[in-house]
């Protein structure tokens, strides 16, 4: 027991232990980093190839291809995923079974396999006909773009369906009841009340999946779709600067992913409306209700 009687508590200071471990870890990491940078510095990398090709037209064409495919495939994925999630939660057992079968089928096989199946569809269906109205050659329709879009978009839908479903489940049951009590049908309540709230839970994993999709589009290079990896490949087959051009591709993937991550944080902010953030942001977001008060 210490005698506290004579201690002036207000003058006491807390002496925290020095952060030896942090200092040690920092030094260690710095050394490792220095070794890696040194290795790349002395390695036989011709860095000027990287800067020469970073903005060259064929590479930029590939970048556009990657972005286009990511956007389109995610659009199809989110659309299908939302529809399938709502089917999965429907009272109609036929719709429920169809949704379960879809997720099972397209989550159960590799994306690359699905791409190859779509691309080679002409082998079993040489022509596609629409109810005998008109028919087209499958080879003409199933371009690398279409095959990649179908393959990536449809398998993405299977993953997104589960993400959307978990978002819908996260919304309190009372919300559906309140929406119904003011005369909304189930569909309308789902679209205007439940889904906007579910978005708060859905957006982070969808952002994650979109970033995954940026890199998954590289699979489309296998079926001759011109995206970043394929366009750098075309170049290094000609000039043999393999690592330099792969670094170019890596830089572009990093750039796209970084931009998407920033975009995601803005979208998250938008959908967190009503979940307690600063009034300033909220004012900026809900212009119409602010106007409503202004008019009176």
């Amino acid at each position: 027991m210490q005698d506290l009687a004579g201690v002036d508590v207000q003058k006491l200071k807390i002496a925290r232990p020095a952060a030896y471990r942090q200092i040690f870890a920092s030094i260690l990491l710095f050394v490792v980093l220095a070794f890696i940078i040194h290795a790349f510095w002395v390695g036989a990398i011709e860095w000027h190839y990287v800067s020469d090709y970073l903005f060259s037209p064929p590479i930029l064409k590939g970048v556009r291809g990657t972005i286009l495919m990511t956007v389109c495939a995610m659009f199809i994925g989110v659309l299908l995923g939302t529809i399938v999630a709502m089917m999965r939660m429907s009272a109609n057992s036929a719709l429920r079974s169809a949704a379960i079968a879809y997720v099972w089928l397209f989550r159960g096989t590799p994306a690359l396999l699905q791409l190859l199946l779509w691309f080679n569809l002409a082998l079993i269906f040489p022509t596609i006909s629409f109810f005998g109205l008109f028919s087209v050659n499958t080879v003409d329709v199933m371009t690398p773009f279409v095959a990649a879009l179908l393959g990536l978009g449809i398998q993405q839908g299977a993953y997104t369906a589960e993400v959307v479903r978990s978002g819908i489940l996260s919304v309190d049951r009372g919300q559906m009841e309140a929406a119904q009590s003011i005369g909304m049908t189930k569909i309308r309540a789902m679209l205007t009340i439940i889904l906007p709230q579910a978005m708060r839970v859905i957006v982070p994993p969808i952002g994650n999946e979109t970033i995954g999709m940026v890199k998954l589009t590289s699979l489309a290079s296998v079926i001759q779709y011109s995206e970043v990896l394929r366009s750098v490949g075309d170049v290094y087959y000609a000039n043999s600067r393999v690592i330099e051009l792969l670094i170019v591709a890596g830089i572009w993937y990093m750039v796209i992913v970084t931009v998407l991550s920033i975009g995601q944080s803005y979208i998250e902010k938008y959908f967190s409306k009503g979940w307690g953030h600063s009034p300033q942001t909220r004012k900026a977001l809900s212009v119409d209700s602010a106007e409503a008060v202004g008019t009176t």
Partner: peptide
């Protein structure tokens, strides 16, 4: 439990 729409 009121069940107001929290995003409105």
């Amino acid at each position: 439990r009121f069940n107001l729409f929290p995003h409105r």
